[in-house]
């Protein structure tokens, strides 16, 4: 983008995180859509006199929109996610509409967590949560890592901090 662009992270997440996101986040949206269509629609039809075909179409559109979001957001998010180490810095870059780039000196990290939810475990994935000092913006996560990679990253951070005092 520029004459001398600063280095950007290049590592990508595990592709199967898309499946995990569809299930973990997408299911909620799908459920909401189904709820609107199969529960709210009959109720409205019955009890609201102003109900018309236009509203029905709008509702259908909203439900289909929910479904589309549930299926589309995960691959887009996956496509935009990048992370990587640059010397003593951990770099992250993510976001679709709101893009965020984050640089954190490894030696400033307070502690590192590995999180594996039940669905995540099914997919063989892990989330790395890193904490720095401070209240706001002090914790951030790197999702969609294979367990081995997450452990490697954690060990690398511990090692870089130099004394294993994590």
């Amino acid at each position: 983008m520029d004459a001398a662009p600063p280095p950007v992270p290049t590592d990508r997440l595990q592709a199967r995180v898309v499946g995990y996101w569809v299930i973990s986040d997408g299911l909620g949206a799908l459920f909401l859509g189904a709820l609107l269509w199969f529960v709210a629609r009959p109720l409205l039809q019955e009890h609201w006199t102003g109900w018309s075909q236009t509203y029905e179409n709008l509702l259908l559109g909203a439900c289909l929109g929910f479904a589309a979001l549930a299926l589309l957001l995960p691959p887009l998010t996956y496509a935009r996610w990048r992370y990587g180490f640059l010397g003593d810095l951990l770099l992250l870059r993510y976001g679709i509409l709101f893009v965020e780039e984050r640089a954190v000196p490894v030696r400033r990290m307070q502690h590192v967590d590995l999180l594996r939810g039940p669905i995540e475990r099914l997919f063989g994935l892990a989330t790395l949560i890193v904490f720095t000092a401070g209240n706001e913006g002090s914790a951030f996560r790197v999702p969609g890592l294979s367990l081995a990679r997450a452990q490697e990253l954690r060990d690398r951070i511990v090692q870089m901090r130099g004394d294993g005092r994590l």
Binding site: V99, E100, E101, R102, A103, V104, T132, E136, G137, S138
Partner: peptide, 22 residues
């Protein structure tokens, strides 16, 4: 502790960004 560069939709369109130093 951390440096963050953020872009919202309008900023993306104009090539602007917000930088935050924590």
């Amino acid at each position: 502790q951390a440096v963050v560069v953020q872009q919202g939709p309008l900023a993306l369109l104009l090539g602007l960004a917000e930088m935050t130093i924590y």
